[in-house]
Amino acid sequence: MIRSELIQKIADENPHLYQRDVERIVNTIFDEVTDAMARGDRVELRGFGAFSVKRRDARVGRNPRTGETVQVEEKHVPFFKTGKLLRDRLNGKA
């Protein structure tokens, strides 16, 4: 399923809404999650999962092609942990 198919499903269920409003609604939800993580916040959606930010410490890396060492700076990466209900549903338990 891709973004446009998700938008279509929501639009089909809500015939009273303009398609372009459904697009704005779906986009707002994903943008809000990204914005939160960009601020360093967590987003916890019970039953679905939680988005959070993890810190990766600075390290000395190596260019695999040349073997040269490079200093890799500390950075932050997005992380998702599946919620219990969804994990159970994936395994036919709920």
């Binding site: 609604i25 707002t28 939800i29 809000e32 999650v33 939160a36 601020r39 360093g40 916040d41 967590r42 987003v43 916890e44 959606l45 019970r46």
Partner: peptide, 15 residues
């Protein structure tokens, strides 16, 4: 870092 936790409520407020 602010370290707040957003929930469904915050997403629906944004919508």
């Amino acid at each position: 870092m602010s370290e707040k936790t957003l929930t469904r409520m915050d997403l629906s407020e944004a919508v």
